[in-house]
Design a protein around this nucleic acid. Structure first.
Lengths: 201, 201
DNA sequence: TTCAAAAAATGACTTAGAGTCATAAAATAA
DNA sequence: TTATTTTATGACTCTAAGTCATTTTTTGAA
C-alpha cells in the first residue's frame, strides 16, 4: 500500500502550510510579531512541531526566499525574447528585475538578506536559478559580439549580480542618506545601468 | 578651575580604552568570546559601566568601524596626487582601497556590516568621510573631461561605492560558491574594475 | 579636614526569543 | 486488540543584551 507516499505528500503539504503562514507573519508590517512562537500560533501547531519541519528559523526564512527566487525566474523567462541580441536581452532582464523588486519588495528583501548575511545555510547561493538565466544573455552577447569577451560569462554574471546587490542594498538601507542629499533612487538605478551597459560592451 | 575639562578628557580616555579592548575582543578569532560581558572583563569594568559610555553594543561596534574609516581615509590621502587626471586618480583610489581591505580585513568587515545591516545608528553613513575624498576625483575627472558628466558627482560616487560594497560582500560571503566554480577572487575584482573604468568614461 | 551632594561604577536581575526534550497523542500494521 | 512507530506538544533551558537599585568615589563649599 502507498502509505509511505501518502505520508510524504502530507508532510510536504504541511511544510507548505507552515511556509505560507510564516510568510504572512514575517511579511506583516504589524510591529514585532516575527517570532517562531508567532508562526506556531498562526499555523495552529506547537513550536516544537515547526522544528520537526525546519531545522531552525533561518531554514524557514530560506524556504520563503526560494519562493521569491522562483517568482523572479518567472519574470525573467517572461522577458526572454529570441529577437534580441545579448546586450539587448541583458537590458531587458535588468528591467524585469526592477519590476520584480517593485512588485514583490518583501520577497526581495528576504533574498537580499541571504545575499548579505553571514551564510547560515550550507548550500548558499539562493539566486543560482536566476543567475543561470542571466548567464544565457551573456553567452549570447559574447557570441554575437555585443558583450566583451575578456571575462568568462560566469565571472561577468557574478560581477553584475554583486554590483546589483550593492546598489539595491544602498537603496534599501541608506534611504535617509539619499534623502539628505536629495538623491533620487531612480537616478541611482539609471546611473548604475548606464555605467554597466557602457562597461559591458 | 578646569575640573570639568579634566573630567571630559578622562571620559574620552576611558571611552578610547573601552573601544580598544572591544576591538581586541571582537577581532579575535578565538571562538565565541564576543559578548559585552567579555569586553567588560577585558577592560576590567562592569558591564553596566560600558552602557554608561555606549548606548548599546552597536554603538560600540560603530565606534570601532569609524576608526577603520579613518584608516581608510589615510590610505586614500596617501594615494592622492596632483599629477593625475580624474580618471587616473579614481583608479589609484581603487587600488588604495583594495590595499586597505587587504591590510585591515577585520576593520573592513565591520564597515561592511554597517553598510549592510538594517540601520541601527541614527546618522548612518559611516563611509561619508571616505566618499568625500572619492568625490574629489570624480569632480576633477568631470572638469578635465575624463569622466562622464551625465550624472552628478554625488550620484556617481554613491553608485560606485554601492557596486563596490556588492562586490566585496560577494567575496566575503560567497567564498564557497566561488570555489565551487573555480572562480578567482582577483578576476572578480579585475572584472569589476574593467567594467567600471570603461563605464565611467 | 569634614561632609553632603553629585557623578561614576557595580553586578544581580530582567527580558526576549531561539531552540530542546521528556512526555503524550495519533497512526500504523500485525 | 495492541505493540510499535511516528508525530505533536509546551514547559523548559540557554544565551546574551540591556537595566537599575545600590554602593563607591569624587567634588567643592564650609
Amino acid at each position: 500500500m502507498g502509505t509511505a507516499e501518502r505520508k510524504e505528500r502530507e508532510k510536504q503539504r504541511r511544510r507548505t502550510t507552515i511556509i505560507n503562514a510564516a510568510e504572512r507573519i514575517f511579511f506583516s508590517s504589524r510591529g514585532n510579531k516575527k517570532t517562531m512562537d508567532d508562526v506556531a500560533k498562526r499555523v495552529e501547531l506547537s513550536k516544537g512541531t515547526l522544528y520537526l519541519y525546519f531545522k531552525n528559523k533561518d531554514e524557514l526564512l530560506y524556504a520563503i526566499a526560494q519562493k521569491g527566487v522562483n517568482k523572479l525566474c518567472d519574470y525573467l523567462k517572461q522577458s526572454t525574447s529570441t529577437t534580441l541580441n545579448g546586450r539587448e536581452q541583458l537590458s531587458e532582464y535588468g528591467d524585469a528585475f526592477v519590476q520584480f523588486v517593485t512588485d514583490h519588495p518583501k520577497h526581495f528583501d528576504l533574498i537580499l538578506r541571504f545575499e548579505i548575511l553571514e551564510p547560515t545555510i550550507e548550500s548558499d547561493m539562493i539566486m543560482e536559478p536566476a543567475l543561470n538565466l542571466l548567464q544565457h544573455a551573456l553567452t549570447l552577447g559574447q557570441s554575437d559580439g555585443t558583450i566583451r569577451k575578456d571575462h568568462t560569462e560566469k565571472e561577468l554574471v557574478i560581477v553584475l549580480w554583486s554590483q546589483m546587490v550593492g546598489i539595491l542594498n544602498t537603496i534599501k538601507h541608506k534611504e535617509k542618506y539619499l534623502n539628505q542629499f536629495n538623491i533620487d533612487v531612480q537616478q541611482i538605478i539609471k546611473g548604475h545601468f548606464h555605467l554597466i551597459m557602457q562597461g559591458i560592451g
